[in-house]
Each structure stands twice: as structure tokens, then as C-alpha cells.
Write a protein that binds this DNA or RNA. Structure first.
Lengths: 336, 336
DNA sequence: TTGCCGCCTGCAATCGTTTCCATGCAAGGG
DNA sequence: CCCTTGCATGGAAACGATTGCAGGCGGCAA
């Protein structure tokens, strides 16, 4: 592959001049510049990013480690991250941790080895020594997105759903539902715990209890949503409404309900955290709490790039909103 | 960040020895090796991948350029690619082309600039000079996945759906459907054209025509599926069954059907190319042609790595299978 | 004519590895 | 005892870019 030397000798100048010409350095004569550009063009020269990175100590690459690429929420997040990063001149390497802390650690290790300029992590549940060590060492700028790990001094870009959960409970209560159940996420993920807590508090405002048998502990996957919902339906007094703390578990719940021959919303109401395009196409369309996923990803990238380029990076909290569709029953106004 | 020199001086050896010790070179004395490893450990040394790449001329990184990350088919493909690549010791940089040839070219350019070891592309429709040039130059090993561009000498890993399409038509015919319509993909993508052709030929076996008004030209997105289906339903003689050439367009079709107050499959049958987990959860569950997506991704990676490591890479064609669910009507055997 | 200044350009060091080649040393055979 | 052999190690040259520093050269003013 043609190198800067080839271009230099073809243009009859030194490599230094070629470098300057290609990087728009002001101190290079116009005709020299055109000669260099011509030479580069005819040779089909593309600068070697690896050599450049070695010299400049910057790779213009970000790492993104997420817990489940197949979850539409994270796909959308990844897409937004990539878009914003590209706009700022960065590439993104995505690592899929599959909710396994050791796989997550593996990705972090290789990304740091590749000398990415910064790291975006949505930390998985569990022990993650490499993650902790990387965060503590502080050599690689890092930002958490969606989830966080308490006790680490890392900025977090996340969504606050308490208001939306309150709206959801208002909505359910207005329709007449009193026995409300929740399918939570893994206890150790911050998002998992937060959503259940918000739900409990929202219920308390109406003096409604949240008994233990109405709390399911899921793992953010379809299967757990299904199992837990079956448990709910087997109770002597099944809940009138189920709130799933993520989209996949809501799908599982829907399957379980349908398999019993029950209907949503006539027999049981269903709502989910995380709105995704597919919820428009289910039967019935699902009421959900929508995170501003795109904004979340973009804000995370900006925060990270701020850190990378020496500006202070601040944590960001966006707010989720309730999107009412038809899966909880009739409301006064028809809505789509 | 600690470099190999730091390790060398702390262990009292030369950098050459450190390098050898860390790379398991046989010619290094056991106690020297342990001294080096200790030194590396206490210094928290991680080899600089950039420098290594510069020297070895290998980045152990693959590029994957796909047309739409939000399409579950490609997400699953990307996931399989990443898994297999990791197993073989490679990282993956994903570029999302969003069906735009110039964005695709942009990604290819930056990936080649980063000196990825190989490139996996699912080419978008349209003019792509950088792609063509990269393929022709042959400096970066390349493999097409799912789609291809005729006239370029690049191995292709794809799925053949003709058999499955024939099965689908058999299935529809047996149920009694005679007026069958198809929503095709962009004409210039190979997959788009192939699926329509396969459908036409399968119909011909029953002496059924495929009139022009029963052929829609979509773009693999939800909106076009909806629009085209509305057109079908507006015909004097609407089709009895619609076959969508990808999953998103099938969703759009479903919406359009539902909005007219029609039911699947009682009023109209629906089937899709590309099976995705969500189709289990729609109402009714959708009959679809399933590609072995995971195998496709893994085979593509293996073919690419073969080229990278100097082995001949061959094109691979896998076969798709029909998954009968309930969206085309009752069959003799109940199926789920 | 001389001196100074400013614009361009080139030299050469540097980034952190890998790897070819040479070298020192110990052991073993003639 | 000397020579050969082989093993373990070190020196130093790459890889391809960027960049501080110095220097050449032309023009302009004194």
C-alpha cells in the first residue's frame, strides 16, 4: 500500500511537506499543495490511521459495551451513538456483553488494548474487576449510559422514569385497576431496582400496597417475563394489571397471557418500560414508558467526547414519558 | 501509560526479551519469563495494540458494513458476526449505511483508513465508487454477505430462498389461495430481485399468473409495506395472500390490513421473508421464511478470515426454510 | 549592499512494538 | 584443551505517520 514516502518522492518533496499538505497546515505553498494532492490521488494514497494513531496518541475511536445487542432498546441506543460519534469524527467499536460480567470485562480489556479514546458502558450486573480498575485508573475516559455502578466516580447519562411511572399508575388507577403487579429487572442493575421502587412509591400515593407476590424478579429477557406472569396468573387473586420493567419481559408476559386464553386489556392490563417500534404492531398496541433513546445516546457521546477533549463532563438525566395505547383498557379520550 | 521499556528496565532485561516473554516465544528462560510477567503485572502493563499493529501490519479487526442496524435481521447477523470474530480473535467495527450508498462509502473509506484486516459488506442499492474501487484493488480482503454486486469478484455468503418460496406457494395453494401478491425489495439489490423471481416461478408451477398490479416495489422499510398493501387492498380484485420480501415490510402490511378492519388470515393471508423472534408475538403469529441468520454471519466471518490468512475463500450458499405459523390460514395439521 | 524578516521546506526525532542478526556463555565431543 | 553447537539475550532497524527546530531564499527597507 502506498505510504507517505511514495507520495513525497512522486511529488518531489519531503514527507513532512506531504503531511502538512494533507492536514491543511497553513504553511504550505498553494502549488506545492496541489502537486502533493495530485501525487496522492494518482497513487491512491490513504493515510495509515494506525501510524497516525501511534504518533498522535489518538485513535478517534470510541468503545461501546452494552449488555444485549438483540434488545431493541440497545440497538437504537447503539445507532444513535454511532450517528453522533460519526458527526464528531469518531468511529465506534461495539462490544456485546450478553449480560455476562466476564464477557464485559473481556471487551473492556481488548478495547483499552486498542487504545480507544473513550469508553461508553452500560454495565451488567455482577463483579467486574477490569471495569472497576479501568474506571479507577482513569486513563481511559469513561461514561456510563442507562445504568451505573454506585461508588465509581464516572459520569452517568440516564433516564429518570419516576414521573412516567407515576403517570402510568394514575392511568391504571383511573381505569379502575387496583391490584397492580410488577416484573422487575435484575436486582443489582440500577435500572432494575429504580423502576420497581418508582412503582411502589406511585402506588403508595393511592394507598395501594405492593405485596411481595406481586413483585417478580426477571432478567430483562422474554423467558423470565413469561414465567413470572404465569406465576401471577396462578395466584388466587391474580393482578389486574402487570407492569414489565423492560420490553422483552413485556413480550413474555403477553405470550403467557395469550396462552391462557386471556385477552389484553379486557382480562388483564399490560404496560412496559421502554417503548419500541414493535409495540405499535402488537395486538393490542402496548402502552409503554418511552425513553428518549436517541437523545440518550447522543448525550452520552457528547459527554464522553467532552471528557476526551479535556472539557469537564457532567452527568445527564433525561426524563421518560408515558405513551398511552390500548393495552391497559379504555380511557376517556381515545388514543393511538 | 506503562510501555514495554518500563517493563524491560524493571525486569532488568531488554525490550526484545519482554516482547518474547509476553508472546510466548519458546526461546526465553523460565525464570526470565516469570520476572518479566511480574514486572508487567505490578506496572499494570497492557501492550499497545496500535504500535503492535503498525509493526505487524495486522489490526485483528474486521469491518462490517450493513444497510440497517435497526432491522432485526441485520442485528442478529451483526451479533453472530461479532461472536464468531471474537472466537477467532478479532474485533468488529460496525458501520451502519442506512441504505445510503454514500454513507456506505464513507464507512468503507474510514475502515480501510484504519487498516482493518478484512471487510464484510451487505451492499446497498446504488452507485458506490469507493466500494467498487476497494473491491477491485483487492488490498483489503472482502466478502459480501446476504447481498452482492454482480460483476465484482468478491465471494458471497448468502441464503437461497427459492426452495422455501416454493414451499410457501405450495402451502398457500393448498389452503386455497389463488390470487397471490408480492411486495418486493429495491430492484437493484440482488435479494430484492431474487425473491420476486422465485415467487413468480413458484406460481408458474401452478399455472398462476403474477400480474403487475400484484407486484409492489418496496424499500425494505415499514412505510413502503404499508403503502403497497393499501394499494393492493384498493384493487377491484384484491389479492388473497400477500408475501412480503422482508420482515419490516410485512409489519407495514399487517398494519394496513388491520387498519381496514380486516383480519389475518380470515380476510387475507400474509407471509414474510426473514423470520424474527417478534413474529412469534404478533397476532396472529406470522408464517415466514427463516434464514439461518446465525450460520450466515458465522460462515461469512470464516470465509473472510480464510482470505485474510491466505487460504482460498469460497462463496457459501445456505438454504432458507419455511416456518408455518397461523397467518396464512388453517392447514391440515395444526402448527405453532 | 547589507541586514532582517517571513514564508516554505526539510531534517530528524519520536510514538511502542516486533524481529533479524549478532553475541556471549555453557556444555559436550573430539 | 579447543572447537562446535545451541540456547538465551541484547542491539538496532524497521513500521508510517507528525512535528519541533533550523535553515534557505526572496523581498523589502535602510
Amino acid at each position: 500500500m502506498a505510504s507517505i514516502k511514495d507520495v513525497a518522492s512522486r511529488a518531489g518533496v519531503s514527507t513532512a511537506t506531504v503531511s502538512r499538505a494533507l492536514n491543511n497546515h497553513p504553511a504550505v505553498a498553494p502549488d506545492t499543495r496541489t502537486r502533493v494532492l495530485e501525487a496522492a490521488d494518482t497513487l491512491g494514497y490513504h493515510p495509515n490511521g494506525v501510524a497516525r494513531s501511534l504518533r498522535t496518541n489518538r485513535t478517534r475511536t470510541l468503545g461501546l459495551v452494552i449488555s444485549d445487542v438483540l434488545n431493541p432498546f440497545f440497538t437504537e441506543l447503539a445507532r444513535a451513538v454511532e450517528d453522533e460519534a460519526r458527526a464528531l469524527g469518531y468511529s465506534v467499536i461495539i462490544g456485546n456483553a450478553d449480560e455476562q460480567p466476564d464477557l464485559q470485562d473481556h471487551h473492556i480489556r481488548t478495547l483499552v488494548g486498542r487504545r480507544i479514546d473513550g469508553l461508553l458502558v452500560s454495565p451488567a450486573d455482577g463483579e467486574a474487576p477490569v471495569l472497576r480498575e479501568t474506571a479507577r485508573a482513569g486513563r481511559t475516559p469513561m461514561v456510563f449510559v442507562d445504568r451505573s455502578i454506585p461508588g465509581l466516580d464516572v459520569p452517568v447519562v440516564r433516564t429518570d422514569g419516576t414521573g412516567a411511572v407515576r403517570d402510568l399508575v394514575d392511568h391504571l388507577h383511573r381505569i379502575g385497576h387496583r391490584r397492580l403487579a410488577v416484573i422487575g429487572g435484575p436486582a443489582a442493575t440500577t435500572t432494575g431496582a429504580e423502576r420497581v421502587d418508582a412503582f411502589r412509591h406511585a402506588l403508595a400515593r393511592y394507598g395501594l400496597p405492593l405485596p411481595d407476590e406481586y413483585i417478580g424478579h426477571g432478567d430483562f429477557q422474554v423467558g423470565s417475563g413469561r414465567r413470572i406472569t404465569e406465576g401471577f396468573l396462578d395466584l388466587e387473586q391474580p393482578p389486574q394489571a402487570v407492569f414489565a420493567a423492560d420490553n422483552l419481559m413485556a413480550l413474555g408476559a403477553m405470550d403467557a397471557i395469550r396462552e391462557r386464553g386471556l385477552r389484553v386489556p379486557q382480562d388483564i392490563a399490560l404496560a412496559a418500560f421502554d417503548d419500541i417500534p414493535w409495540f405499535l404492531h402488537t395486538a393490542p398496541p402496548l402502552t409503554a414508558i418511552a425513553q428518549p433513546t436517541g437523545d440518550l445516546g447522543r448525550a452520552a457521546v457528547r459527554a464522553l467526547v467532552d471528557r476526551i477533549e479535556g472539557r469537564p463532563a457532567r452527568s445527564v438525566t433525561l426524563t421518560a414519558t408515558l405513551v398511552v395505547r390500548r393495552s391497559c383498557g379504555a380511557t376517556e379520550r381515545s388514543s393511538r
